[in-house]
Write a protein that binds this DNA or RNA. Structure first.
Lengths: 227, 227
DNA sequence: ACAAAAGTGTTTTCATTACACCCATGG
DNA sequence: CCATGGGTGTAATGAAAACACTTTTGT
């Protein structure tokens, strides 16, 4: 057993971050992927991400890569898991700290730069094949989100600032893949006391106008059971 | 923006693992700490852990460090979180992938070697001051365990192979810090169908002998609500 | 005989689910 | 005037919580 005296003597893996971003568009859950401009896996679709800099916090690194490669900012971002199998990157030993993000569809301005030639949303049902072990990371993120929705309000990050009760109900129905009862849903949601009516209604559709609502807080709330 | 051509050119943080181990002894939740034999923080108490080797899986690294520094093996071990603040280690940039473990008190054989001069159990209410940001990691682990117990059977890793219903109830009471109703507890636990009576009773105490039980499976089971 | 923990059912309470009709608007 | 989604209450069901006494052993 060798004694360790100094950090510099350690032969250590490199550290990267990868970000799984979810949004809902047209009632379908989608994820944002970039087309790799550099080797390895040049031309393949991949999660946005890259290496952590020498003196950079890993959370900041995830924010930075997300912004650089996709133009996305100001979203909910949380650490997911750290993937560390020795052979996951053909270039050498790379450990990846994965994050996941949820964003509302509208403020998105997709943009390509840096390693990313192109950024696009893919429905989860129609994913291309992915670089590295990114398929595994994506599956892990999806499981986490599906789970976390049960006991927190993270789904709210998928909604714009103002929304109707039907909007939010549809969001839950999309994520869970099942229909919910309108009256029960509203009763439960309103009883939580976490949203408030905005002083606006949504008109212009050929139907009765809908009351708009807003969140009282944008912070993460965890409950024993949410829905 | 610099293009990355090779992993070797990246100046990257070093990667370590740290392990938070919980057990219950004398009805009190305790954690296993080691006394550091090497600088920095020589002589201070710390979580068992160390650097990940060049071609070593991070999970294996956690298992190895746990075994080397404390002699503990064969326990439930799960990744907790990755701590990556740039200044968390005075020696230089070190990212730590934290794990947490739960173990039954009996098969423990504490042992010191390598960087660890000594290993000891501390009640969570009486912790010494800890090296690095280990206090933060420990708090994070405790929160995770307290939460996960609500919807999984991980608490079982704290119990020996055979146990009485009162044993397991006391375990829940210790972790949650509140008393449970005996009849309701048994009704619920047995209805889950995950334990079976062992063909033994616990005699020898000056009281009515208790039926011993065993788990049908030792695997992790997650339910929507456990208790 | 007594101390000490094992074992055992019923009632109450609360949250979730199921279910159907009228309302306001734009075209 | 009609198609479209908005908006609203009550009854039935099921799970969790509250609650007290008898049994078996060792000393």
């Amino acid at each position: 057993m060798v004694k360790i005296k100094s950090v510099e003597r350690i032969e250590s893996p490199k550290v990267a971050v990868d970000v799984v971003i979810f949004t809902v568009e047209d009632g379908v859950l989608k994820t944002l992927l970039i087309k790799r401009a550099a080797a390895p896996f040049r031309g393949a679709w991949a999660l946005p991400g890259g290496f952590v800099r020498k003196q950079e916090d890993i959370y900041r690194a995830a924010l930075r890569e997300l912004k650089e490669e996709t133009g996305v900012g100001g979203v909910f971002l949380e650490q997911l898991y750290t993937f560390g199998e020795p052979k996951r990157d053909p270039r050498g030993r790379v450990i990846s700290v994965a994050y996941y993000a949820l964003m509302s569809r509208d403020p998105m301005n997709l943009r390509a730069s840096s390693d990313a030639a192109e950024a696009r949303l893919f429905p989860l049902a129609k994913l291309p094949s992915l670089a590295f072990d990114h398929k595994k990371i994506l599956a892990y993120a999806l499981a986490r989100v599906g789970n976390k929705i049960q006991y927190s309000n993270i789904i709210w990050s998928l909604l714009p600032r103002h929304f109707t009760l039907t909007d939010i109900q549809k969001m839950y129905e999309t994520i869970w893949g099942r229909r919910l009862d309108k009256r029960n849903f509203r009763k439960k949601l309103l009883s939580l006391g976490l949203i408030k009516p905005a002083r606006k209604v949504l008109k212009g559709l050929r139907q009765r106008p809908a009351q708009l609502f807003a969140f009282k807080t944008t912070k993460l709330v965890e409950l024993r059971r949410f829905f």
